[in-house]
Every structure is written in structure tokens, then in C-alpha cells.
Write a protein that binds this DNA or RNA. Structure first.
Lengths: 218, 218
DNA sequence: ACTTATTTTTAGCCTTGTCTAAAAATAAAA
DNA sequence: TTTTATTTTTAGACAAGGCTAAAAATAAGT
């Protein structure tokens, strides 16, 4: 059984591993968790002793198989609760993160088994992120960033990279949500901005936005 | 905002106040919480400084109005989550306590407002205990213990005093649950035991059982 | 009323998880 | 390759919440 703090570290390292080649640095963990590097060192050493991380001083850290499975379990819970909050309690997708952040630490196998069933064994959370299965395995999808598309390509929005309220509300204002079909009408090489078509509407999309929206090309 | 430990103390003191005249003693709190009296003294003094308890050394403690409201809020959450677990996730009523014990500490007004609505604004939890409203007020019901009934009186089971798995499973084996109608066929003054009728079946009920089952006379 | 037993509090220590300040590695730059 | 900058670790401290052992109040028994 892991403490709240331990679970949060494992979860964060799991996420950081995904977009980092090699080990995860102490500072990057401290940044993500809004804590100090010295605190990170302490916890990383503790988790390494517990066999959750492999760690060499000054060389960064990586999850062990056990650590990755534990982290995936926390993320599974987080994402299932998000589905519950949106599908059943009718929260908006930009309101659920903080609450799921608490709910993910409830300890009960049986609870999650039943919640999963109750929700109809969903594969993705409300932001389009995949929900790991019981064993911590994640179906990997071949989604790409909107910014990787070129003129005239069509795609379906399947997720967001950034999950801040600001960004999600920005998308809502333009009626972009999971499942939205869109077409790239034009792309500016100068600043990476795009013009896209959504339904009957056309929007200007900044590079930053295009780099935070995942699409699946059809 | 209160810590998990603080909320648990307030909740426990709330419950102890109900069946105690005068202040709640340090030892009784320690017993209920499975902790040491010295730890209780520390926390009680801390909560008194925060205005949640009124406390005089060696004289026991009582909740202030603010303290009582906070405690009722925690209990409200606990009981709403129990309804969720039983009604929606199909847990059995003897399995939900530990989980609700964790869920009651999730901090989010909005979550509880929506959960309450989702569950249809229930007034009682699966054990028949009343759910405090938003302001911490509890509808008091005129339930009595089965042991207070006399021969030939009829009643409807509306709750249990003891909530251990053992007791709840014992009741289940006899098909006694919330809403069950029963009739006292006989009562033994010697040991307080009873014979009761439930449907077509007749049972022998010990004094201890009769003292832990709440009924409403009709 | 006085002695004994029980309850409650105090004092001091421990663990978890955090922090600051300073030291040690590593990386970058001249 | 030295020097400088950055990153990481260590050392020591702190707050929360718990514990043990001992002291102080209160309650009970004679």
C-alpha cells in the first residue's frame, strides 16, 4: 500500500517518462509537482528502496515494472473517476481534474472493478486519454497532433495534450470536443497557425493550440 | 479546510455526543478512534483553539455550533457515498463502510451537491441512518429499539445501531433489512430475548440483537 | 478525610514529507 | 582544460500527528 505522496510521485514520473528519452530528472519532477528538488531526491531514494524506481545518484530515475504498474493503477482510477464525473454527474470536462486528483487515492480494488463495470468499461476518459486496464496496460492509439496535419487533411479530435480549464473552455467556445470532425483549410509556415473547418464554421488556430490537440486521421 | 485527522475527530465526537450526557471524555474518544488518550488531548486542544470544540482541562469536550456543522458535513458525505455504493454500484450494505470512510474526506461542495441530486436527494443511508442536509440539520425520526417493543406490537425495521459486517450478515441470513415488517410474538423477561415473526418465518432474537435494531411502530 | 485507583495531561521522542542552505557532481563555456 | 554555471544531493530544521512514560487531577473506597 502506498501513501498519497508516494502515489503522486509515481504518477508524475510515469507521465514524465512518456515524453522524455532516458531517465527522468530530479528538477523536472520538482517542477511538475510544485515542490523542491531536495524533497524529490528524498522521495526518489525512498521509492527506489521500495523497488518502484531504479535510480543512480545524479543520473535521473526510471520506473521499474512494479512501479509502472502501480502508477498505471493510479492513473486508471483517476480516469475512471473522470468518466463518472462527466457521464453520470454531468460535470463539464474542464471541472473534473482536481476532484479526480483526490478520488484517485481511494484504496479499494472492488470499488474500481464495480465502477468500471458501472461505467460500461470505458476505454478513454473525457479528455480522450486512454484508461489503463486492470494490469496497467494501455491500448496505444495512433493519434497525432493537429499541428502535424497538412492542408486538406481531415481528422477527428480524439484528445487534448494540455488540460487546463482555459484551454478546454477555449475549445468549447469553438464547439471542439472529443469526436469533433475537422478539416485543415490552410497552414501558415511562418508561424505554424492554421485555418480549420468545423461543421460550417471556419477558425483561425494558433500553433500553440494545434500542438495541444490530438486528432486521428481518417 | 480541515485535515483528514481533524475531520475524523470531529465526526467521532459528534457520534459520541449523541449517546452521552454532558461532555465527551478523552478516553471515550481514544477508544472509538483506536488511538491513545495523549494523542486525543493534543488534537482536542488544537480543535478547541480553532473554535470547533469547547474544552476545559479534565472536563471533557463538546462541539461548538461550527464544529457540529462541520462534523455533520462529513457525515453527510459519508452517508451519501454509502447510498451511491449500494444503489448504483450494487455493493452489499455490509461492505460499504470502509470505502465511505475514505470517500467522506473528498473536498468539493459541487461534487456533493451533484451526487445528492444524482441519488435523488435520499433522506437515509443504507443502514437507515438519516443524511444531514446541506446545513447540517438532521430530520429526527421517532424510531425506537426493537427491544422496547412488547408482545404483539408490530414494527418496520428502519435502521441498525451496530453496523459490523457480522451483525449485518446475521440479519441478512434472516431476511431482515431496511423496510422489513416484523411482529413481536413473545418476549422473555428473564433474558430479554424475543420471538419475532418476519413474513412466514419465526425467529428467536437475543437481547443484544433486539438492542441494535431500530424499528418504527405502525 | 485519606488513601488508592482511574483519567487526563504534559514532556519528550518518532515518522512522514516538506523546506532552506550549503556542498558535491555534472555540464557548459571560455 | 580550466573556470563557471547548473543540477543534484546532503545536512539540519520544521509541522502534523502519533506514541511512551511520567506527572497531575479527579474519582472511588474505606
Amino acid at each position: 500500500m502506498f501513501s498519497l505522496a508516494e502515489e503522486n510521485y509515481l504518477k508524475t514520473i510515469y507521465h514524465l517518462e512518456q515524453d522524455t528519452k532516458g531517465g527522468v530528472s530530479t528538477n523536472s519532477i520538482a517542477d511538475k509537482m510544485d515542490t523542491k528538488p531536495s524533497s524529490v531526491t528524498d522521495m526518489v531514494q525512498k521509492l527506489a528502496e521500495k523497488g518502484m524506481l531504479s535510480y543512480k545518484k545524479y543520473k535521473g530515475t526510471t520506473l521499474t515494472t512494479k512501479g509502472r504498474k502501480t502508477a498505471a493503477g493510479v492513473i486508471r482510477k483517476h480516469r475512471l473517476w473522470e468518466v463518472f464525473l462527466v457521464d453520470k454527474l454531468k460535470f463539464h470536462w474542464d471541472e473534473v481534474h482536481e476532484i479526480a486528483e483526490q478520488l484517485e487515492h481511494i484504496h479499494s480494488e472492488e470499488l474500481i472493478t464495480r465502477l468500471d463495470k458501472y461505467l460500461g468499461h470505458p476505454d478513454f476518459d473525457p479528455h480522450g486519454d486512454p484508461i489503463p486496464d486492470k494490469n496497467g496496460n494501455v491500448k496505444k492509439t495512433e493519434k497525432k497532433l493537429l499541428s502535424e496535419l497538412t492542408k486538406k487533411q481531415k481528422g477527428v479530435c480524439v484528445g487534448v495534450k494540455e488540460t487546463s480549464s482555459e484551454f478546454l473552455q477555449y475549445l468549447d467556445k469553438r464547439n471542439i470536443t472529443i469526436g469533433t470532425k475537422l478539416t485543415v483549410l490552410g497552414k501558415e509556415f511562418f508561424d505554424g497557425s492554421m485555418i480549420i473547418q468545423v461543421g460550417r464554421d471556419q477558425f483561425f488556430i494558433s500553433k500553440k493550440t494545434a500542438e495541444n490537440l490530438y486528432v486521428q486521421t481518417t
